[in-house]
Amino acid sequence: MKKLFLIILFGFSISTFAQKVRGDKVEIENYIAKKWDVEYALMSGLVIKKLPLKTDFEISLTKNGTFQINKLSGEVIKGTWVYNSLKHYIILLSNENIIGKIAKLESNKMELIFISDKDSNSNLADIKAILKPF
């Protein structure tokens, strides 16, 4: 009995912490259509705490499938987002290139993984950002 309880508890904890992007199109649109700010980021396994004044970027996503990233440097990246309901993630496209993937999405938290070419000079490359709505 104790073994069964531990197995159930283990399964519940995995499902709780391994949430992917799930829901129908309307639910996803309602969750995502916000302005998001970096809470913290992970780079090569190291936690980068959010600076108190401003972050390197903020991202706004809309219900109509568009997004805009405003970098602290003043650079603006615009594009579209697409929900893959079979694989349970959202990709961010800019100029027909995949620049990021939203791997987890909740009403008050989002995990964004930036994707870049090896030749890219992007300072957002290889960063997993944990964001929260404004």
Score class of each variant (00 low, 15 high):
Lys2Phe: 12
Lys2Arg: 12
Lys3Glu: 15
Lys3Thr: 14
Leu4Phe: 08
Phe5Pro: 07
Ile8Tyr: 14
Ile8Trp: 10
Phe10Cys: 12
Ser13Ile: 13
Ile14Ala: 09
Ser15Met: 14
Thr16Trp: 14
Thr16Leu: 13
Phe17Pro: 02
Phe17Leu: 07
Phe17Tyr: 08
Ala18Lys: 13
Gln19Thr: 06
Lys20Glu: 08
Lys20Asp: 06
Lys20Pro: 03
Val21Gly: 01
Val21Arg: 00
Gly23Tyr: 02
Gly23Val: 03
Lys25Glu: 14
Glu29Val: 03
Glu29His: 04
Asn30Met: 13
Asn30Cys: 11
Asn30Pro: 10
Tyr31Arg: 02
Tyr31Ile: 02
Tyr31Lys: 02
Ile32Asp: 00
Ile32Ala: 01
Ala33Phe: 01
Lys35Gly: 08
Val38Asp: 01
Val38Tyr: 00
Glu39Gln: 09
Glu39Thr: 05
Tyr40Val: 06
Ala41Trp: 03
Met43His: 15
Met43Ala: 14
Met43Arg: 12
Ser44Arg: 10
Ser44Val: 11
Leu46Pro: 15
Leu46Asp: 12
Leu46His: 13
Leu46Glu: 15
Leu46Gln: 15
Lys49Pro: 05
Lys49Leu: 08
Lys49Thr: 07
Lys49Gly: 05
Lys49His: 07
Pro52Tyr: 08
Glu58Gly: 11
Glu58Phe: 09
Ser60Lys: 11
Thr62Lys: 04
Lys63Trp: 15
Asn64Lys: 14
Thr66Gln: 11
Ile69Gly: 00
Asn70Val: 06
Lys71Met: 09
Leu72Asp: 13
Leu72Ala: 14
Gly74Val: 08
Lys78Ala: 09
Lys78Phe: 09
Thr80Cys: 06
Trp81Ala: 00
Trp81Ile: 01
Val82Gly: 05
Val82Thr: 10
Tyr83His: 01
Asn84Ala: 04
Ser85Gly: 07
Ser85Pro: 06
Leu86Ala: 08
Leu86His: 07
Leu86Val: 09
Lys87Pro: 05
His88Lys: 11
His88Asp: 11
His88Leu: 14
Tyr89His: 11
Ile91Ala: 06
Ile91Thr: 10
Leu93Arg: 10
Leu93Phe: 15
Ser94Gly: 07
Ser94Asn: 07
Asn95Gln: 10
Asn95Tyr: 10
Asn97Gly: 13
Asn97Leu: 14
Asn97Ala: 11
Ile98Asn: 03
Gly100Leu: 02
Lys101Thr: 09
Ile102Asp: 00
Ile102Gln: 00
Ile102Glu: 00
Ile102Lys: 00
Lys104Asn: 08
Asn108Met: 10
Asn108Ile: 12
Asn108Leu: 13
Asn108Val: 14
Lys109Phe: 04
Met110Arg: 01
Glu111Arg: 07
Phe114His: 04
Ile115Tyr: 02
Ile115Thr: 05
Ser116Tyr: 04
Asp117Gln: 13
Lys118Thr: 11
Lys118Ile: 12
Asp119Ser: 14
Asp119Tyr: 13
Ser120Glu: 04
Ser120Val: 04
Asn121Thr: 15
Asn121Cys: 11
Asn123Arg: 15
Leu124His: 02
Leu124Gly: 01
Leu124Lys: 03
Leu124Thr: 02
Ile127Ser: 01
Ile127Leu: 04
Lys128Met: 08
Ala129Thr: 05
Ile130Thr: 04
Lys132Ser: 02
Pro133Asp: 00
Phe134Cys: 10
